[in-house]
Simulated scan of single mutants.
Amino acid sequence: MDHSTPAGKFIVIEGLEGAGKSSAIALVKQFLTELNQAEPVCTREPGGTPLAEKIRTLVKEVNHDDPLCDEAECLLMYAARAQLVANVIKPALANGRWVLGDRHNLSSLAYQGGGRGMLPLVQAISAATLKGFKPDLTLYLDIPPKVGLARAANRGALDRIEQQAIDFFERARNTYLTLANADDTIEVIDASQPMDAVHRDILSALQRRLTA
């Protein structure tokens, strides 16, 4: 008889700045807690381990004396992600815990791949570091960049990535949508709607995907 612990599931929330990820994560966390009678392990990227959090600081801060080049940004993102997957996400899943992620690999494909114009490089690094590991379900909160950035600006000072030109975010959004259309584990949620409508659509997707 097999007494091994059933593997948990990995659920990720994605979206551009100002898409409403924070409120969506709180909603999904509550849903998963009620579904499994246990809180999920919550992670964020870049970050989620002591070393990965140090990398997050490097990626987010503006350094005029030593500007972060695009290739270094990409490599740092995957260094942080590799640490998080190896030391937090995979062990939790193996122990039957569910994991709720604030961003994952789709962010790098969209931001560094689409936004920075380095998609072949990002795909190669992704394949080498993740070896096919991916979320069971990704909820992509889609919003026009101008709308999202206006929301983000109302929260306070923008970080280094949030300060990119609007064209950067347009390319990132287009990449998000292209990848979502080709992957049936990604659900696109219209995040430009009022919050109650967004949350209704999120709960509908979770019910359909996780309780059927």
Score class of each variant (00 low, 15 high):
Lys90Arg: 13
Ile25Arg: 04
Ser107Gly: 12
Ala26Asn: 12
Ala38Ile: 07
Val41Pro: 04
Phe133Asp: 09
Pro144His: 01
Leu51Asp: 09
His104Met: 08
Ala157Phe: 11
Cys42Asn: 06
Lys146Met: 15
Ser204Pro: 12
Phe10Trp: 07
Leu58His: 03
Thr175Cys: 05
Asn181Asp: 09
Lys29Thr: 14
Val12Phe: 02
Leu210Tyr: 06
Gln30Asn: 13
Met77Asn: 12
Leu84Gln: 08
Ala165Arg: 15
Val62Tyr: 12
Leu158Ile: 06
Ala165Val: 08
Val85Leu: 06
Leu139Glu: 02
Ala172Lys: 03
Met195Asn: 15
Glu162His: 00
Leu203Trp: 10
Tyr111Cys: 01
Ala80Val: 03
Leu75Met: 14
Gly96Met: 04
Ile13Thr: 11
Asn181Gly: 14
Thr5Met: 09
Leu76His: 06
Arg171Gly: 03
Leu35Cys: 02
Cys74His: 08
Lys54Phe: 12
Leu84Cys: 10
Gln112His: 10
Ala205Tyr: 03
Ala153Val: 11
Ile125Thr: 15
Pro67Asp: 00
Asn63Glu: 05
Val198Lys: 00
Ala150Trp: 06
Phe31Ser: 02
Gly132Leu: 10
Glu53Leu: 08
Arg208Trp: 03
Thr57Pro: 07
Ala52Gly: 02
Val12Arg: 01
Asn63Val: 13
Gly113Gln: 01
Ala24Phe: 03
Ala80Ser: 14
Cys42Val: 15
Glu73Ile: 02
Glu162Ala: 01
Cys42Thr: 15
Leu68Lys: 04
Pro40Thr: 01
Arg56Ala: 07
Asn181Ala: 12
Asp201Arg: 08
Arg171Ser: 10
Thr178Met: 07
Asp142Pro: 11
Ala94His: 13
Asp136Asn: 09
Pro50Ala: 03
His199Ile: 06
Ala19Gly: 11
Trp98Ile: 01
Val59Phe: 03
Gly20His: 04
Ser192Asn: 12
Val99Lys: 01
Gly115Trp: 01
Arg173His: 06
Thr49Asp: 04
Asp184Thr: 11
Val85Met: 09
Ala124Trp: 14
Leu16His: 07
Lys146Ala: 14
Ala180Ile: 03
Glu61Met: 08
Arg155Leu: 05
Asp184Met: 06
Val122Met: 06
Asp183Gly: 05
Met195Arg: 15
Leu106Tyr: 12
Leu141Arg: 00
Leu203His: 09
Glu71Arg: 15
Arg151Cys: 06
Gly8Met: 01
